[in-house]
């Protein structure tokens, strides 16, 4: 069997069995869109495109945060427990291990993001009566842009968690999350039409997501087994 599938499949199964992580993710997936729904509904003033833009705007940070939540289980726990050392002795390259884990984190984080998006749509529809389910750009956003950002955040955070010590990781987790959210806000600011949903905005976010993914891959390539082993607590 393909080792990539073996690693990714195991991370997905473990994510489903970790009740505390699942509960945290579910609470965030429901709480954040419900809290945001009112401000989106008021700001959009019944404009379907503006509502869709608002939903697109909140799903990116939600997806990135979900990636962070699931990374703690896939990367940091293995390091804290020391089981990563045994995995590094398997006939699998470090890059393949990182890729499998990153995708194993991305899938449950993406599912949680979809749940969060569904809650957003339902809450805003209930508040405004505006139907936005078939907005093509929003679907493109969910299918093409958000997964790339989740994969990039999971890959970057995962690589950092492998390379850094426990204390640095505690600090760095928040730095990454705020860094990603800051980047999203900046990109929304520079995109023509602000944070509204448009082909240009989606193109900018897709390009930025791919660049982040390439950066994550580059950084993961620089992490060595020695670095990982020497930072095991």
């Amino acid at each position: 069997m393909n080792t990539f599938r073996v690693i990714a499949g195991r991370e997905m199964r473990l994510a489903l069995r970790n009740r505390s992580v699942l509960i945290s993710a579910l609470i965030f997936a429901v709480w954040f869109p419900v809290m945001s729904a009112l401000s989106i509904a008021v700001g959009a003033e019944g404009d379907a495109a503006a509502v869709a833009g608002g939903i697109a705007g909140i799903t990116l940070p939600v997806g990135v945060f979900m990636g962070y939540i699931f990374c703690a289980d896939a990367f940091l726990r293995e390091k804290r427990d020391g089981t990563i050392e045994t995995l590094l002795c398997a006939p699998v390259s470090l890059r393949r291990l990182w890729e499998g884990k990153a995708i194993g984190v991305t899938v449950p984080a993406y599912v949680m993001m979809l749940l969060s998006a569904a809650v957003s749509v339902a809450a805003i529809t209930a508040l405004t009566g505006v139907s936005i389910a078939a907005e093509p750009l929003l679907i493109l956003h969910f299918v093409a842009v958000v997964p790339v950002w989740i994969a990039a955040s999971a890959g970057l955070i995962g690589a950092a968690q492998l390379a850094l010590g426990m204390r640095e990781n505690q600090i760095l987790g928040f730095v990454f999350i705020f860094g990603f959210i800051f980047l999203i806000v900046v990109l929304q600011g520079v995109a023509p039409g602000g944070g509204g949903l448009s082909v240009t905005t989606e193109g900018i976010f897709a390009a930025a997501g791919l660049a982040l993914l390439a950066l994550a891959r580059f950084i993961a390539g620089k992490v060595t087994k020695e670095r990982i082993v020497r930072t095991i607590p």
């Binding site: 069995r17 020391g82 089981t83």
Partner: peptide
Amino acid sequence: LFENNGLSDRM
């Protein structure tokens, strides 16, 4: 076989 056995407690 290292000290930690290399096993996942949840599996």
